[in-house]
Amino acid sequence: MPDMGFDVLWKGKNFLRLLGGLGVALKISLISVLISIILGTVLGILWHHNNLFIKAVMRSYLEVIRIMPQLVLLFIVYFGTTRSFGWDLSGETASVIVFSLWGTAEMSDLVRGAIISIPAHQYESAFALGLGKAQVYLYVILPQAIRRLIPLSINLVTRMIKTTSLVLMIGVVEIIKVAQQIIEANRMSSKNAAFGVYLTVFVMYFLACWPISLLARKLEKRWR
């Protein structure tokens, strides 16, 4: 059996350090996800508004954030704004800001899409039955919008978790950075550490995202 370099994991606290790195990645993504879901929902509903100014602002926000690679956004916020505006941002805070900006844009688009995807006739047939406005939203529109929204937003969550691997580029010590450090530190004693360590990283990401994907699939099936 070839040396796959798993032995490194059991040296010192390496395995725990990797887990800690995963923790940092999850912390950044989950805080961002929380902010994104709240702000995204608000903006998505605002977008439904007929105000042209709001629409134009939303449109440009969404386009800019979408077109720009997340890495560029990270660099702008972490290296760019800290210099130009002279404020002090930790890598983690900058990451949360960037991922929230991105997540909010994506989420608002999902919310907007979910609401406009409910056909006008659904409102009409509910109103024709004599339901009040609040009842129409509560029993007819929102349940359908949320059903469409949940699989999509869970998908967004897993994408955000995976994309946090970029934050190592601004010096945040998350799971991949820890992996690099471990491999680097053991270059002499165990030359094949890269395979074992990165494989472990892969498994950890997988275990973090897979249950979320499963949940999405299950909900999608149930609410088809």
């Binding site: 509910a126 024709a128 004599g130 007819v140």
Partner: peptide, 27 residues
């Protein structure tokens, strides 16, 4: 007033997330 006016549409417009019975019982 609308409760006293029953309307049936060309494209049914049932609520897709509810069973037949729930569709009927909701209003």
């Amino acid at each position: 007033i609308r409760q006293k006016i029953g309307m049936v549409f060309q494209n049914y417009e049932l609520f897709p997330h509810m069973t037949v019975l729930d569709n009927v019982m909701l209003a």
